[in-house]
Design a protein around this nucleic acid. Structure first.
Lengths: 325, 325
DNA sequence: TCTTGATATGTAACCGGTTACACATTAAGA
DNA sequence: TCTTAATGTGTAACCGGTTACATATCAAGA
């Protein structure tokens, strides 16, 4: 790789001049500019970002901290983040923490020492002491870390209500629900919204993590203890898929006997049989908004913290009945 | 963040001494060592990796180039890579290229200028000119880039044969197949193995990309034109899921009327109804092996290029019949 | 006692950029 | 013609580490 010095020599100017034309800063004569551009082209020069980082104290890197990219909700988020970051000349460093404080801590110092310009956090340590002292632009995504840190989330409360409304409207009279992990505020809201509207009609409820295995176990328990019910809302699509599979295994016809609604809108829902009706949160959009917000923060365009609530919509596939008229 | 100079002053030694204790290199008296360690602890010092990179020309960063993290095969790979990299003190930079040469090119210069130490490539430009001139350790994963570049792949040929054998052994007599994109060598091998064993029994075959939508379309065509068949092998699990869904929609009973086998062993296969029988490639293992190989290459432990072929296994879930005795 | 090698430490060059500053030239305005 | 501001360019300091090299001390062996 050529260095700026070589370019300078090749163009018969000083390194300062080369730097000036690279950055379009300061005064440069047309003549010099052309010579430099020619040299750059001929030597196939690209400036060393490490050197630039060292002086500028900015790396054009952003850290993406997530629990586990293997969880099907996150890849779409990661994709959106990477797309937007890339469009603005940033790269993203992927960090899986499995929600372990220690891993998170390790990553945090690694990211700091490599001078990332900002952080997007999709893990949920509401009181993670690590973030308190961190002087870095950051935005929480699908999670609420603490007041004072920007957050981008979908409207889980409305989503929960929408799920209940839909089920009721399609003739369900006995509702059930599988909630997500208790410590996730954004997920809890879905349950709150659902319970609020379901009211007396709620006949069964349990809780599960977001792994398919656990969800299957929770479904089985629910079917064993609370059956019959004719409408169920799962805290996310993976859980809904488990419910579906268990229903099929028990020869319960969906949607005739049991209507199922998930939450997320991940591609998986399209692949089940029958395809899953779900409350979709605009995942890509959330990633996009979060990243754009982060870049604004990095460029100090706006620093008042705020929480961005994105609307959800109902996607009717085939685990709910047709709308009655 | 404290700098090495501050630590040096605080410990009453020179920066060289501090550097020596940090790197356990050269001679340092016990006395000095303790003073430095105390200073480091007190100032909460962590060396600036950017500065270190500049001098060392090594960043402890590895670039991960994939088509699209949103494709459910890749997150597991990414996860494995990140795990291993992290255990060795490396971070990974995520790059989605959508198989577009231009994006790939852009990333390649970005990664080079930030001095990544190595590359893991899961895209498939067999003749991508970009890689030819690149003087960077790299390993291809699930893809074969070109001779001279290490590759880690699963044994698709054996997998295809295993799928056909299994179907035949379970009583299927009319076989069908949906192949993957033609330009992916590793995927083509699956088809070759399958066709080889299926022989005369093969009554229908088509091709599809790895998106669910396309797969669904291909399935419909196959059912329209080649039905009846009683055993089908799909080039990956996403396609198999589409076949399954289409079969259910047509009221074809699986596995009684039609047995289905996928390839990959991704979690999705567990979530379909019925759960999918599939040829599993050891995805996590592949990521691990590739990363360990890359780290060896980076540390110059071994530089003879080689191709690593990992074995596949049959995972019998419920889209195939019980083994006949 | 003198030599020699091991131990210990500091100074300064270096990595490859960016930019403050000094200096030179030129054109416009008084 | 003299000032002054705008334009153009180079030198060197700087970012924060690593390390080559110079130098100093000390103990062991000749």
């Amino acid at each position: 790789m050529a260095t700026i010095k070589q370019v300078a020599k090749h163009a018969n100017v000083s390194v300062a001049t080369v730097s000036r034309v690279m950055n379009k800063s300061g005064y440069v004569s047309e003549e010099a500019k052309e010579a430099v551009e020619k040299a750059i082209a001929e030597l196939n020069y690209a400036p060393n970002r490490v050197a630039r980082s060292l002086y500028k104290k900015s790396s054009n890197l952003i850290g993406l901290i997530m629990p586990d990219i293997t969880n099907p909700f996150f890849p779409q988020l990661a994709r959106a983040i990477e797309d937007v970051a890339n469009q603005h000349g940033y790269q993203v460093v992927l960090c899986n923490t499995d929600e372990q404080l220690k891993k998170e801590q390790t990553y945090l110092v690694a990211l700091q020492t490599m001078h990332v310009d900002g952080l997007i956090i999709t893990t949920n340590h509401s009181h993670n002491p690590n973030y308190e002292t961190l002087d870095l632009p950051m935005v929480a995504l699908d999670r609420i870390v603490k007041a004072g840190i920007d957050a981008v989330v979908s409207d889980g409360y409305e989503g929960g209500k929408l799920a209940a409304d839909t089920l009721l409207q399609r003739g369900a009279t006995r509702l059930a629900h599988i909630a997500g992990p208790d410590h996730l505020k954004t997920v809890k809201r879905r349950t709150e919204g659902f319970v609020e509207v379901a009211g007396e009609k709620l006949v069964g409820m349990t809780e599960s993590t977001f792994t398919f295995k656990d969800a299957l176990k929770a479904s089985q328990e629910l079917f064993d203890h609370a059956w019959p019910f004719d409408g169920i809302f799962a805290a996310n699509d993976v859980i809904a898929a488990a419910v579906l599979q268990e229903a099929v295994r028990r020869d319960i016809r969906v949607p005739e006997e049991l209507q199922v609604i998930g939450y997320d809108g991940i591609e998986l829902g399209e692949m089940t049989s029958p395809p899953l009706t779900t409350i979709v949160q605009p995942i890509y959009e959330m990633g996009r908004v979060a990243t754009e917000r982060l870049l604004d923060l990095i460029e100090k365009k706006d620093t008042r913290p705020k929480e961005m609530l994105l609307p959800v919509t109902l996607l009717e596939r085939h685990t709910t009945k047709r709308k009655e008229r």
